[in-house]
Write a protein that binds this DNA or RNA. Structure first.
Length: 868
RNA sequence: GCCCGGGUGGUGGAACUGGUAGACACGCAGGACUUAAAAUCCUGUGGCUAUUGCAGCCGUGCGGGUUCGAUCCCCGCCCCGGGUACCA
């Protein structure tokens, strides 16, 4: 009887589902826990292609391995169910996104089930489920009622800030803010309730402020920075423009330093950490004030190279800088305003495209370099960004290429400040050498100059040491329908949150999924809101309702979902808290997280941010969500193109399973190459793994399907094959090298086939090794070996060094009666051959006299290597 | 431009980070079984030379270097992938 994968796979999938064998228990006393998580999918209408399950297969292999190792494994799955495609489809067809989403989820589930994953489906989450998103809304409420205490470096309830203000005014707390305030305790007390709320809004971790945002007219919504790629929207590719709008934002910038620091403590790939570091963009330097000549104003600048301040020959302000209109002289006014109009008219894309051209205008004003006391002109130019640093720079054309270009174009002075600096063709940004043309810094190295000049600046009280970050606060509102409604209403335009016990604030029904005629988001069309049935007085219908009409972005639910899986499926408890203390104390954090690297600056950053926030408030015991992260690569089509419905090159896993079986699919996806790598799908290669499974099958059965199993004692050779495999595969598992483990199975099966080995003892262990990759066939063989319990509970086989001993012999050789070293020889060599090798080794030793080699490896024929 | 990765047979990829490069698989060629096909099995397969000789030489993007020994370490180039982009 040949290996009938289709019958076997159906049989075991059914049994696993019925027995709920993979459901994890929270009260498993004594067992160590292990949490393996996949980035949950957005259920799109096109279903899964063979690229999607790659990461799921890897995580499933590891989850199964950990079970064999005796861990209580949590391996859940769910759906990131809010999102644009379902809403776009709704706009076109009028079908409710919830219906589209449900349909897609059903299809996803069918496809996933066929692959034989060991997910604990009882814990499934759906971000669009009110039972789930009530807690997303709840976290938002906590963010709203919190501020960031820079002194203690953590978030705190807003009440402690209010107490500080009452005690000592704005100076009593060092807080992360949107705007700087200066008020005394008395002044605070004198503010009315509205004013107080207004001030507090600038301190909250979830705040509403008029900020310059990425507005995408094509999608009719704002987008976060990571959702904009090359000036167009990541989804849909619509143009994005900069617009000042009143929007909800999350104060992620308060966590910039901790988001950097945390990277040191987690095992994520270096490249991913690097991406996050760059995105956070920390730079150290100084902030210095330059007095404007004949004016009470001063221009504040941020610089990373205060040591080059003697080379600062002019200043440049961003065209939007508020000082521009205050300092521009009469005769330059026209030119400056013309330039401002010009830059305003240019879109983000145009600005990017024209990045290389130099433009600017002179304000007519001069500033005084506070260290050199020289008079330097103040310009405006759009290469200086209003949003970074102070929106103004001191230009050092000798050391900065953009400043050099500007100086060169407008014929401004360029002074070298470091010995040997070559400024003839461009700037020279070297950071080594001795200072020149730099007054009291002359003769000092750059390094010395840096600390000397900062000391000087601080003693003159014209500036201070300063750290800047590129990271921006995360815009949190979307003018869309299919997302979590904000638990927020307004009184006199001041936001209030809905009582926690009124959650969830259900997403209301609307007649259409488009914005209202007044330009309000789709929720403006809602005539029924459920949240306030009893009170009922704040709810109003239609546009103009004093309730927040935006919804949350797609990344809201995914920023905390890993916690929700920790709860066992007990409805009452689930509705009582986000995650129970006991559950989170037991599971703590994700041990292994698998997903794409494309989420580096989006999900993976917000995920860490929310975790740190919940940690600060004492809701969870860890401040990093995932200890280890593996980024799976993409599987492309055979021509190396991206697999997509649009190109018609999609390979559907269902078809592969139909033809070769799920175990073959799983093995093949792993065998294609290292998990992190992008690789093209190769249909022919699957024959190899499929052949391997048939060979494995034939170690157990003859052609008629009769069992070949024997209870004979295994031979030395058979044991060696097995234990070599155990050793290699165990090592592969630890290294997450799931492709090489497939090779190691194949080698073992080939060797055992050659040896005609049908011995129970050998095959039993081998089956366990294979079971992580190919669970269905392994369960079937396991049953045929006479076991009643599932193979997933079988302990991982241990290898015995004894069986692995090489046939080579180690030969000690002494030289001059002193130095001892070993040569390794093949045992098959004849006595005279061995003597020859020893002689050769001794000669090698002589040759290397004085270098003290420890080991000489000799192979038949010649000396190959000498280890020194 | 800057910052990370990475270049190994016809192909996907191995090589325990300094110790016999090319495991394993695909593909290809030849053979066995078969009326034939499928399936299965065997042999060969980096290049060049020699295959009546066991062998020899060259080979991990290119050019140098360190080392007894380099795919691995160092220096200088070239190419590919990813991130980022007037971030002062």
């Amino acid at each position: 009887m040949e290996y009938n994968f289709s019958g076997i796979e159906k049989k075991w999938q059914k049994r696993w589902a019925e027995s709920k064998i993979f459901s994890a228990k929270n009260n498993s006393s004594g067992l160590p826990k292990y949490y393996v998580l996949d980035m949950f999918p957005y259920p799109s209408g096109s279903g899964l292609h063979v690229g999607h399950p790659l990461g799921y297969i890897a995580s499933d292999i590891f989850a199964r391995y950990k079970r064999h190792e005796g861990f209580n494994v949590l391996h859940p799955m769910g759906y990131d169910a809010f999102g644009l495609p379902a809403e776009q489809y709704a706009i076109e067809t009028g079908q409710h996104p919830a219906i589209t989403t449900e349909k897609n989820i059903k299809r996803y589930r069918e496809q996933l089930d066929k692959i034989g994953f060991s997910f604990d489906w009882d814990r499934q989450v759906k971000t669009s489920d009110p039972a789930f998103y009530r807690w997303t809304q709840w976290i938002f409420i906590q963010l709203f009622h919190s501020w960031y205490n820079k002194e203690l470096d953590k978030a705190e309830p807003i009440q402690t800030l209010i107490e500080a203000f009452e005690r000592g005014g704005s100076n009593a707390a060092k807080a992360a803010t949107t705007a700087e305030y200066a008020f005394s305790a008395e002044e605070w007390q004198s503010f009315d309730a509205g004013k107080k709320r207004e001030v507090l809004l600038d301190y909250r971790l979830a705040y509403r402020a008029a900020t310059v945002v990425n507005w995408c007219p094509g999608l009719g919504t704002v987008l976060a920075n990571d959702e904009v790629v090359n000036g167009v929207s990541e989804r849909g590719g619509f143009p994005v423009v900069q617009k000042k709008m009143l929007q909800w934002s999350l104060r992620i910038t308060a966590y910039a330093e901790r988001l950097l620091e945390g990277l040191e403590r987690i095992e994520w790939t270096d490249s991913l950490k690097e991406i996050q570091r760059n995105w956070i963009g920390k730079s150290q330097g100084a902030e210095v004030a330059f007095q404007v000549e004949g004016s009470e104003h001063a221009v504040e600048v941020f610089t990373t190279r205060p040591d080059t301040i003697f080379g600062a020959t002019f200043m440049v302000l961003a065209p939007e800088h508020p000082l521009v209109e205050l300092i521009t002289t009469e005769d330059q006014k026209e030119e400056v305003e013309a330039y401002q109009t010009l830059t305003k008219a240019r879109s983000e894309r145009e600005r990017m495209a024209e990045a290389k051209s130099v433009t600017g205008a002179f304000t007519g004003a001069f500033a005084v370099n506070p260290v050199t006391n020289t008079r330097i002109p103040i310009w405006i130019g759009d290469y200086v960004l209003a949003g970074y640093g102070t929106g103004a720079i001191m230009a050092v054309p000798a050391g900065d290429q953009r400043d050099w270009d500007f100086a060169n174009h407008f014929k401004l002075e360029i002074i070298p400040v470091i010995e040997g600096q070559d400024i003839s063709e461009g700037a020279d940004s070297r950071k080594t050498g001795k200072m020149i043309n730099s007054g009291f810094l002359n003769g000092h190295t750059v390094e010395e100059a840096l600390s000397l000049v900062i000391e000087k600046i601080e003693s003159l009280e014209i500036g201070k040491r300063k750290i800047n970050y590129k990271l921006r606060d995360a815009v949190f509102s979307r003018q869309r329908y299919w997302g979590e409604p904000f638990p927020v209403y307004y009184r006199d335009d001041i936001p209030f949150t809905i009582d926690e016990d009124k959650l969830p604030l259900m997403l209301p029904e609307v007649d259409e999924y488009k914005p209202t005629e007044d330009g309000d988001p789709p929720l403006g069309r809602a005539t029924q809101w459920n949240w306030d049935r009893e009170a009922g007085k704040i709810v109003e219908n239609g546009s103009g309702a004093p309730i927040e009409l935006s919804t949350m972005p797609g990344w809201a639910g995914s920023s905390w979902y890993f916690l929700r899986y920790m709860m066992e499926d007990q409805k009452e408890i689930r509705d009582k808290e986000l995650v129970s203390k006991e559950a989170v104390e037991y599971w703590k954090e994700v041990d292994l997280y698998i997903g794409g690297a494309e989420h580096a600056t989006g999900h993976l950053l917000y995920f860490r941010f929310w975790t740190k926030f919940l940690y600060d408030l004492g809701f969870i015991p860890v401040d990093e969500p995932a200890k280890k992260l593996i980024n799976q690569g993409m599987i492309q089509a055979e021509d190396g193109q991206k697999m997509s419905k649009r190109y018609g090159n999609v390979v559907n896993p269902d078809d592969v399973i139909e033809r070769y079986g799920a175990d073959s699919l799983r093995l093949h996806e792993m065998f294609l190459g290292p998990i992190e790598m992008h690789k093209p799908w190769n249909t022919k290669g699957i024959e190899g793994v499929s052949k391997f499974l048939r060979k494995l099958w034939r170690l157990f059965h003859d052609q008629q399907g009769n069992s070949l199993l024997s209870d004979e004692k295994p031979s030395k050779e058979e044991l060696k094959s097995l234990h070599k495999c155990i050793q290699k595969v165990t090592d592969d598992m630890h290294r997450h090298s799931f492709n090489t483990s497939v090779s190691h199975f194949m080698i073992a099966v080939n060797e055992l086939t050659d040896l005609k080995c049908h011995k129970r003892e050998i095959l039993e262990s081998l089956t366990i090794l294979v079971s992580c990759h190919a669970p269905h066939i392994s369960e079937e063989l396991w049953e045929r070996l006479g076991h009643e319990e599932s193979i997933s509970a079988a302990p991982w086989p241990a290898f015995n060094e004894e069986y692995l001993k090489d046939d080579s012999i180690r030969y000690p050789v002494s030289f001059n009666g002193k130095t001892r070293f070993q040569i390794e020889l093949d045992a098959a060599l004849s006595k005279t051959e061995v003597e020859e090798k020893v002689l050769a080794a001794e000669e090698a030793q002589k040759y290397l006299e004085g270098k003290q080699p420890r080991k000489v490896i000799v192979v038949p024929g010649r000396i190959v290597n000498i280890v020194v």
